[in-house]
């Protein structure tokens, strides 16, 4: 307490000390005022996220453009056949690789309605990665329905766990801003980036589905699940957005599961009558080519799906099936 007791005459020293303290407060306020003075005020922009990120290129240039089409109704067999036709999983996954598998877990529906990545296929893919020497496999998606429910009900969560992969559910802190070079929509947009930490190989696994807004949901549309924020506004220009997704992600491989195709009522489906047995498994290093082929399963032409030509024009791949190394195998 700096109180002064009763009836005491003040010494000069006390006066000097008090003056110095008052002076110190004056000087401190003056310095604060000078140091933090702002003659302009705030600008129009929200402060940008300084830790903006870019997804690295996960493709293997040496592998070139190649695609395998395996026919059969058993996904475990067809994925093995397709990969073998492309030179085996070892030509994509090396010893010590850390692999991210981006599934489609969009809806909290059971695997049988085929609105999401098939769990058996996922489990086999994880096994294959580990068999090729991968040191870790991570499975992720930012679904549309509640994430916890989606991963539980689709069976994807269980498949990932039992396959020994790490499951990463999206959380608020897992997103970082990204700006895709040359993009109009994906500018300073939140990207599910945390699961990519330490990852050097990326595989996208998606079912073939009808999609009312874009025409079809296949491997390129699957990257939508890497976006955060209010991504629903992108439906105002869905084809360009899918093109930008293809520009954003350069995967090692994409797996397009056309064993059963959701022909109607997409992308949620919900009834077995929406599905058709088409018995095709596509594995490709070119996502545009994979989607171009997938379109035929839905009975749609490339003209019905403008995003395919847009993605091709943007250099994300090619739908020219003449120039790709195409392997057809059946079980």
């Amino acid at each position: 307490m700096n109180d002064y007791p009763l009836n005491r005459v003040w010494s000069r020293r006390e006066f000097v000390v008090r003056s110095a303290k008052a002076g110190a407060i004056l000087a401190a306020s003056g310095l604060l005022g000078y140091g933090f003075y702002d003659s302009i005020g705030p600008g129009p922009d929200e402060s940008p996220d300084k830790s903006s990120v870019l997804l690295p290129d996960f493709s293997i240039p040496a592998a070139g453009r190649k695609m395998a089409i395996a026919t059969g109704d058993n996904r475990v067999q067809t994925i093995n056949l397709a990969l073998k036709a492309l030179g085996g999983v070892e030509s994509f996954i090396r010893k010590g690789d850390r692999v991210l598998v981006k599934v489609n877990a969009a809806f909290a529906t059971p695997a049988i309605v085929s609105a999401t990545t098939n769990p058996e296929l996922l489990k086999e893919l994880i096994r294959l990665c580990y068999s090729a020497g991968a040191s870790s496999v991570v499975v992720t998606d930012n679904p549309i329905n509640d994430p916890g429910s989606c991963f539980a009900l689709t069976g994807i969560g269980e498949a990932a766990r039992s396959g020994g992969a790490r499951l990463i559910l999206p959380r608020e802190g897992f997103f970082r801003e990204t700006t895709v070079p040359g993009a109009a929509h994906l500018v300073r947009w939140p990207l599910l980036y945390e699961p990519f930490h330490g990852i050097n190989k990326l595989i996208g696994v998606a079912p073939v589905k009808d999609h009312h807004r874009s025409g079809a949901s296949m491997t390129m549309k699957n990257w939508y699940g890497l976006l955060g924020g209010r991504r629903n506004i992108f439906h105002q220009d869905i084809h360009n957005l899918i093109k930008e997704l293809a520009m954003m992600v350069k995967p090692t491989l994409v797996v397009l599961d056309g064993t059963t195709t959701m022909m109607t009522n997409g992308p949620t489906g919900g009834s077995l009558s929406d599905l058709k047995q088409t018995n095709v498994m596509i594995v490709s290093t070119d996502q545009v080519a994979a989607d171009a082929l997938g379109a035929t399963l839905l009975g749609r032409s490339l003209h019905d799906l403008p995003f395919i030509a847009m993605a091709e024009a943007a250099g994300a791949g090619s739908c020219d099936l003449e120039t790709i190394r195409l392997e057809r195998v059946s079980s």
Binding site: M1, N2, D3, Y4, P5, L6, N7, R8, W10
Partner: peptide
């Protein structure tokens, strides 16, 4: 300071 003492806090 006041001869009666003062409290300053």
């Amino acid at each position: 300071p006041s001869a009666g003492g003062e409290i300053s806090v």
